[in-house]
Design a protein around this nucleic acid. Structure first.
Lengths: 148, 148
DNA sequence: TTGTTTTATCTTGATTTTAAGATAATACAA
DNA sequence: TTGTATTATCTTAAAATCAAGATAAAACAA
């Protein structure tokens, strides 16, 4: 930063932020068409692909505060896509189950959504995508572990 | 997405989101120490590095709604880091100027901030960082241009 | 039992978006 | 030119979203 030549780390940081912002703009706009926002869609998709989860575990996977999970699940429940179910063994736990309507929504829109994402990342060819994925996984994993 | 093998685009999208999320977690935590949040810091840094900007243009660069620009600039102005200045040629425009206090803040904290970012992206070596930057710039540029 | 930990909810404040409105500049028609 | 319509910019107010802390309930350990 003090030296005149561009800093590679800062350069990477800016490129990462920009890329994420713009690719997400595509995804968000698409999700909006389904009457959901990014976090709602993320939770619903998680339940679809991974099955019922206690709220606690959802938070860990989507990187969200517990208060916000309650809020998001509330909204999904109001929309009829998710149902809460109390755990009988451990009564502190509350499971979120996807409903038939929720499953149908994902069935209907997920293929389109993937297509939108595919177009959004169309700036790279398959080989480049793989290279980028590999680097980003390494980058993300390190950033996560060193966050403490 | 219907075929069983992992989709390279979706894979990239997830890796991008995760990496951005975790690297930003480092940056956000650091920025908080200065009494600002990510958007405030982003706007202030923009004014520091690129000079005075009409509010409108800030929004374009930081990808924010016009209503939120007003809010963020208000806060920066209350904190004494920014000053509004009406444009004389085009009276619809309002410039945001960084103040001496704002400049001093960035002078003081930017080096530390860069250090935090450098540590956050420490999962890659310089060569990998350059490769990642290159790919991400390409990715971001395409996503931006195809967003319309 | 008592105290600690885990989990979910509630509450509150901060942030963001959206929509509407005010004002100014521009384009265009008469 | 004059007047009108359109467009651009910023602000305001309302509603939605998000995040953090406090609370409550249940599980667990001593």
């Amino acid at each position: 930063m003090s030296d005149p030549q561009k800093d590679v780390s800062l350069d990477l940081f800016i490129a990462l932020s920009r890329a994420s912002q713009w690719v997400n703009a595509h995804a968000d706009r698409d999700i909006k068409r389904y009457g959901l926002n990014r976090t709602e869609f993320g939770v619903l998709e998680l339940l679809y692909h991974k099955g019922s989860q206690p709220l606690q575990q959802i938070g860990g996977k989507v990187l969200m505060s517990s208060g916000n999970i309650t809020y998001v699940v509330d909204k999904l429940e109001k929309k009829g896509y998710v149902k809460r179910r109390d755990c009988t063994e451990d009564r502190r736990l509350v499971y979120a189950d996807i409903t038939d309507a929720g499953r149908k929504l994902i069935d209907d829109v997920f293929p389109e959504h993937v297509e939108v994402i595919r177009r959004a990342v169309g700036g790279l060819n398959d080989e480049e995508k793989q290279a980028a994925s590999h680097l980003l996984k390494k980058l993300g994993k390190y950033a996560e572990e060193s966050f403490k």
